[in-house]
Design a protein around this nucleic acid. Structure first.
Lengths: 350, 350
DNA sequence: CCCCGCGTTTATAACGTTATAAATTCCCCT
DNA sequence: AGGGGAATTTATAACGTTATAAACGCGGGG
């Protein structure tokens, strides 16, 4: 039964680091246990690793002593010796801050990592540098054992690099690369397809969609699902140009308001994000239009926000926390080896 | 000029970790530089540390060689040797997920840590265990050099423990402890005071406030500011009981709706969080009441959300990203020593 | 001439862990 | 009785770094 350092009890009394701190017992190491049991350090190490070369009785004795002392292996030493960091790096674009996008994922990830030996370390990206930089840095300096990231592109540099380096990772979103690799994605094709169908079924005759920036893979998925639906039904459609799901909310509102004021305004909107949905609603409100009568709206919901927004709109729920959890789990499997990459891919349904 | 490993370039070509990876150059260490310059490892180490005992010319030569190789010190080795981790731990209660509370702060923190040798590590708390557990764990096993946390209580166990242990930390929120310690807080007294004054000035005669759970320090600040204002003006008031700012949005909405349906309903609401503000708005909407006519609302705004919410309501902005940045900066100063604790305290204004 | 002391460099050891190979014990078989 | 294992334990070295103390070379003062 290998030890890890999931947040545990914290044992006994104050440890003390600062000056002016006296007689409190020092942190137990393998040596402590060795002296206590009369065994060699090596033996203790292997016993804690449940090495079958060590007599079963010895293993138990050692493990008991370790538990009694509240022993936890020193991460730095393990890392230095083995090269494994016990760290998982989440590369986060500060842009993803909006409306808790990142936090929900983080929540799922930390939950999945609970009870394992792994820590989640946030590596900020800052969009003024190439996406690949932090990845290179992590791999080159072995800052982590695995990487998580999102905003995947069809021909993603990071994926190429990591696949070639054989470095474990899971990304949020698919690529169009030939080599299979682990990913977690949401079925954005189905999202826009269903959203469009719903709007049309409610009587909408001219659909309007706001897409993510073109460089991301899910731009194409969304566009495809949308186009398929409008073609099947033969209704009018518009794809927002000049604004994306990444645009500032004010920009989206102004753009939509301008469009609504023109002739032949759309009567059905599809928003792939909460921010843009709110912007569309406020644009409509500012023009005196009423949701549900003058126009309809389907949004992707990632938090509980729309449960409190009035008037109520139709939403399709994407569970980011679940996505985060899954990403972390797949990464753990990937790092453990064994599982073929083909089984480390997931597309989450609506 | 000491090295750190702020995300840099990533030098040259693929490093390679996985099996099946051949002749690419291995990671440079002090030894590499020593061989290159013909000096001893010790000398190189000290030269990189700009030790004045080393001849100035040697220092330059070594530093140049290091830069050329793209040398970065091995964190694990440094950590093992020195006991310093170069890690800052942010203890995050998954509860704080709501509406990007955590992420804004994280954004500020990572920004402040950019260019330093420190990493931000998320340590989840999970409210089914005592708040003090992760803190104990971090201190005892030296998992970080400093700690950041929020949801501070008047007689906070974590603060007591950390002060006694002499372990660097900065918390979000004040305590009522005698010992001074670093903190960053928002002036919640002023928030509720001003909010109440504004509502009264707009003609409200019966104010209603939703407070944070009583155990948190800012509950008392908010209550105090609110009470001061209503007493000064002599208007009626109510303090929500049974719900807090931590309650689920649905619970808040139902509670408020029930209250609004009774006699003598409040006509002015103060909400210390975005979620509860949305809940109040939806409650009013569901009862056919109109914001700005039947009742007024002042909310604390921490994101751009309310810019898109209609009808518009009055808000007072709290910059969480700024708070995060400041917390990280104060912690850096605290860890560097030198600065007296008295100067590591900040109350952010509206 | 010798030795002191200064400026500079270096050898040694240690942080805590684990992979490797070697050592020890004990039993069984010829 | 002797030796070939198997089972179990141990010694050694190494990961990359830095604190400590020692060593070196050199010029100047006694």
């Amino acid at each position: 039964m290998p030890l890890d350092d999931a947040d545990g009890e914290g044992r006994k009394n104050t440890p003390g680091i600062a000056p002016g701190n006296t007689g409190t017992r020092t942190k137990p190491t393998l040596k402590t246990i060795a002296e206590l049991t009369g065994l060699a350090v090596t033996t203790v190490s292997r016993a804690l690793g449940d090495d079958p070369h060590i007599a079963k009785e010895t293993r138990q004795r050692v493990q008991q002593a370790a538990a009694q002392l509240g022993y936890l292996p020193d991460r730095a030493a393990q890392r230095l010796r083995t090269g494994r960091t016990n760290v998982i790096s989440l590369i986060l674009d500060p842009h993803e801050e909006i409306l808790g996008y990142g936090t929900s994922m983080i929540r799922g990830m930390t939950a999945a990592l609970r009870g394992t030996a792994y820590h989640l370390v946030i590596t900020p990206h800052f969009s003024d540098t190439p996406q690949i930089d932090p990845v290179r840095h992590i791999v080159r300096n072995r800052m982590a054992d695995g990487i998580l990231f999102s905003r995947t592109e069809p021909s993603d540099e990071r994926v190429k690099f990591l696949v070639e380096a054989g470095f474990p990772f899971v990304c949020h979103g698919r690529t169009e690369l030939a080599t299979p690799h682990p990913y977690v994605d949401y079925d954005n094709y189905l999202f826009t397809y269903n959203a469009a169908k719903r709007l049309i079924a409610s009587g909408c005759r001219r659909l309007f969609i706001i897409l993510p920036p073109e460089r991301f893979t899910f731009h194409h998925h969304m566009r495809h699902g949308f186009m398929t639906a409008v073609r099947e039904e033969g209704v009018g459609f518009e794809i927002a140009s000049g604004i994306t799901l990444d645009s500032k909310a004010d920009a989206v509102r102004e753009h939509v308001a301008a469009r609504l004021a023109e002739g032949h305004p759309p009567d059905g909107f599809i928003c792939g994000g909460e921010v843009s949905a709110m912007a569309v609603m406020s644009a409509a409100h500012d023009l005196g239009l009423e949701i549900g009568r003058d126009l309809r709206l389907v949004a992707k919901q990632t938090s509980g926000l729309f449960d409190q927004v009035r008037p109520r709109i139709e939403t399709i729920y994407e569970d980011l926390s679940e996505a985060g959890r899954l990403m972390a789990e797949l990464l753990l499997k990937r790092m453990a080896g064994a599982t073929p990459v083909g089984e480390l891919q997931a597309v989450l349904e609506v």
